[in-house]
Design a binder for these strands. Structure first.
Length: 271
DNA sequence: CAGTTTATCCGCCAGT
DNA sequence: TTACTGGCGGATAAAC
């Protein structure tokens, strides 16, 4: 159903909308075409039933067409964000967000942000550890905190499970510096033991593992987006000498940095 | 490449 | 009593 290098195949017909708990609407090419009445009615019905609606990329237009986004925060691919805003003025469009979690309706920006959003859902439903396992299988960053992670999450009055968010942003700001557990614990104002425990509770990993993931995330960004020589990546990401940087990269991603860059540029992956 | 040292992190437990 | 903290020891793995 998509012409950008991959396709989505549904294993059930529209009838599945009648009893699904979560409905994921993938992006589609022709956003000017109104989805068929069956689809619109199915989405509306599913929402009123209490089902959770998830849109990826341009699929926000389908939800907006039903009127489900009126008065709510939502996002879509940056290239069509202003079009969405113009076409549906009542929608609170957030063009700079990776994804928006508004409780029963969730929208994501590009396709990669869609992956982030789906991992976010798994984390909600099955815990951080399960989400990390899926992320690893997909070779995706467990949590794109590594980057300008902008996402809006409906603030839920109960369980505030993001106590360590400031610590994580602090880490991201000091990626290139040498950091050990004591440094992190000191910055968080707690003992090592408590830090490790709370960190795992909240993110599903340990502090150091999270940190190298974030550093690898940045290294991949540089490989994908710039021509920065591989030799410099260690210094620019905090992964250490070129040798250790390569070792870590290979251990976690299964390829060399150079190969990663050429592979990435070969298949014209778009979002 | 084998051997040594160093750091992480988690189970256990005692102290609020 | 429950809930949480943080020190200790050691298994494991990375660094040298």
């Amino acid at each position: 159903v998509h012409g950008d290098g991959f396709s989505v195949t549904a294993s059930a017909g529209l009838g599945a909308l009648a009893d699904a708990d979560t409905v994921v609407v993938p992006g589609y090419r022709d956003i000017d075409a109104k989805p068929s009445g069956d689809v619109l009615a199915g989405l509306l019905d599913a929402h009123q039933r209490g089902a959770r609606l998830v849109s990826i990329c341009s699929a926000a237009f389908a939800l907006a067409a039903v009127g489900l986004l009126d008065g709510r925060p939502a996002t879509t691919h940056w290239r069509v964000a202003d079009k969405l805003q113009r076409q549906y003025p009542l929608v609170d469009v957030r063009p700079n967000c990776l994804y928006v979690d508004d409780g029963d309706i969730l929208t994501s920006a590009g396709v990669t942000a869609g992956i982030d959003l789906c991992l976010h859902l798994i984390r909600r439903d099955n815990g951080a550890a399960a989400a990390n396992r899926r992320a690893r299988a997909l070779v995706a960053p467990p949590q794109r905190a590594g980057g300008q992670a902008q996402y809006v999450e409906r603030l839920r009055p109960d369980a505030s499970g993001d106590q360590l968010a400031p610590l994580r942003t602090w880490l991201l700001g000091h990626l290139t510096e040498p950091i050990d557990l004591d440094t992190i614990a000191g910055s968080a104002g707690m003992s090592r033991r408590t830090l490790v425990r709370r960190f795992r509770e909240e993110t599903g990993t340990s502090p150091m593992a999270w940190l190298t993931d974030a550093r690898l995330d940045r290294a991949r960004e540089l490989l994908e987006l710039t021509d920065e020589p591989v030799e410099n990546l260690g210094r620019l990401t905090g992964l250490g000498s070129p040798a250790s940087m390569r070792a870590i990269f290979h251990r976690r991603l299964g390829t060399s940095p150079y190969e990663y860059r050429t592979m990435f540029r070969a298949d014209g992956t778009t979002s």
